[in-house]
Design a binder for these strands. Structure first.
Lengths: 348, 348
DNA sequence: AATATTTTCGACAGCGGTGTCAATGGAATC
DNA sequence: GATTCCATTGACACCGCTGTCGAAAATATT
């Protein structure tokens, strides 16, 4: 109508004409609806392929009221490596199903835009569904906005209200337990833990796993072995300084995330301790930091991309089946212990 | 028509009726077209606000042939922190102009999907324009795909063919020069450089800046002071080992990116050198790694988010003015030296 | 005051698909 | 052979907006 078509493509009408059928039949074929004769279907498919036809997304959305767009919501896109991983997985699932991935961020309420800006975006974008990542997946305002918009959503690793929506998760507690036992089985008996922020659910679950493991082995973890941290490398450094100042110095330190583990490595170096000879340090998450650190961190691999992929799958599967939306579903993914160079048996 | 409207919203018809004007007039108002009386415009705007009307994106796209979607293309979304930064900036610009951001990735040709998968996505998604990031912005196949699709595009920090499209960039050479001079001015005279991959344009420009700075000060950089690296921390470690093995050991090391600088820190620790007392190490890029490292890295801040923001702006501005597309435009952004803890004057 | 211009506004035809529903025709049933 | 029944298929309205173009109203010109 108005602008020159960027690349003169075909429309469903062209295909219908070429195949000698109605546009509705073509529509049926490309949407894999039934009720089309095998022969007709084959002919149409052939022509579609030959002419390189691809349906117009806008027209399809307008008519069907689906956008074929999935949104992933982050608190701050720039902040964490996490974000990239999530996108990789989500994109994979989207492509498989013919969806596209739109990235949205909710800025903290004080920032320009804030949650309101997010709500507006939500309405405009007409997502078919959204995936919420931590910590937005536990933000009451964000959840309210999404629910008000009537959008189906799946949460990744939520901290609470597990009945509120479908979600995917990993067993942090169990992973931390295994991570701790790995140190134990190497022979470590004085194992310290660097905790994450108090309001961070997965940090709490990891701490829980650590405690459980020790109790399992008949050891009551001493309070001074659990050092407060903030998930940042500097806090890991400080925490380690405190731990190394203890009368009975730990032989192994388990940091609740990789960044703090890197801080721990630095503190060890400052104290002239060689890792893993004099001190073992293990992390959690398996971010690129873990691989880049020196020595390379022994850690727990969190299947971030896979969780995102699963989340998008659940979402898309749910579209077909309205009941799925109501029914709460959860999907668990497996972690994996990663053995690298920062942990070893303690010196006799 | 078919599914129950998620949240019963208004259409342009409702607004027109409420305002007592034609839908076309409402359309004019919301698109800020001229040719509407001030009074009429005000009335319509008021009703739009009161009823909370937001135009249906699909309908608008179908009719206007614009999708209000901007694509950002990455090689591998998961790999670099870079990706998040770019998205932050791009999203900022998109929101301001009422666009949405879709993330796409081109997988290496050998991967499932590969460049072909990307080309298909391009056609489906009907982007109004795309932003290409390194290294895809120099990939002939990718460029060909984008151009074949007839899409306007802006590149971020391309390495070559600067006439081929508008682009945004930062002066790597000058920044590296300043970074080197900073070390020089601290009193360092034996400054080594850890180079990036041979085919990486910005690495070459940084090396050039390093060389220039030394020549500026009347020093011809010795070949053995320039160590090969691969932008990965391990390669920085190895390079540093070689440099520290030199008869006349350098007092400062300038790594062409932060990751290699982190490797350098590790190598220094292994050699029992305290940074920055015994050895200064500086990086480039100012990724989170720089802040997380121990000691925190003195580096050069690359305005990644701002570059992406500028790229999207150029793209959107170009839509209004067809001539802009043809005309090559470039926009330069400023780097910023970041002073942290890994560099200090050499020991007397 | 009559006419020429300009500004403001609306009718209407698409954009390219999907949903509804009725028509067609061959197989199955009686 | 007439009737009923599915499986196929197509006609057509419609999704909500923008572009075109002509009409009406306001303003300027002579």
């Amino acid at each position: 109508m108005q602008r020159d078509p960027p690349a003169a493509k075909f429309t469903i009408v062209d295909i219908a004409r070429a195949a000698g059928v109605s546009i509705k039949t073509v529509s049926r074929v490309i949407n894999q609806e039934e009720g089309v004769g095998a022969e007709t279907r084959a002919r149409v498919l052939e022509i579609v392929a030959a002419m390189g036809y691809r349906p117009n997304v806008s027209a399809r959305s307008l008519s069907s009221r689906r956008s074929y767009l999935i949104g992933v919501i982050f608190m701050r896109v720039g902040a964490y490596h996490y974000v990239g991983e999530v996108q990789v997985g989500a994109m994979r699932a989207c492509r498989r199903a013919g969806y596209h991935l739109v990235v949205e961020q909710v800025l903290p309420p004080d920032a320009v835009g804030g949650v309101q800006g997010f709500a507006d975006e939500l309405r405009d974008a007409r997502f078919d569904g959204v995936v919420l990542t931590p910590p937005t997946c536990d933000d009451p305002e964000v959840l309210a906005a999404v629910e008000t918009a009537g959008l189906p959503y799946v949460r990744i690793a939520p901290d609470r209200e597990f009945e509120r929506s479908p979600y995917v998760f990993m067993d942090d507690r169990k992973a931390a337990r295994e991570q701790t036992l790995r140190l134990w089985n190497m022979g470590h008996r004085r194992i310290a833990f660097i905790d994450g922020p108090a309001d961070h659910g997965s940090a709490a679950r990891r701490r829980q796993g650590y405690i459980e493991a020790l109790r399992d082995r008949g050891v009551e973890p001493r309070p001074e072995w659990i050092a407060k941290g903030e998930f940042l490398s500097l806090s890991g450094f400080d925490a380690t300084e405190r731990l190394l100042g203890l009368p009975e110095r730990p032989t192994a330190i388990f940091a609740a995330n990789d960044e703090m583990a890197v801080g721990a490595l630095a503190a060890a170096a400052k104290h002239g301790l060689s890792v893993p000879r004099d001190l073992s340090v293990v992390g959690f998450d398996d971010t690129p930091t873990a691989e880049a650190a020196w020595p390379r961190l022994t850690t727990v691999h969190q299947p971030t991309a896979e969780m995102a992929e699963a989340a998008v799958e659940m979402l898309i599967d749910g579209f077909g089946d309205e009941r799925l939306r109501a029914r709460v579903a959860a999907r668990q993914l497996d972690y994996r212990l990663v053995q690298r160079d920062s942990a070893a048996p303690p010196l006799a």
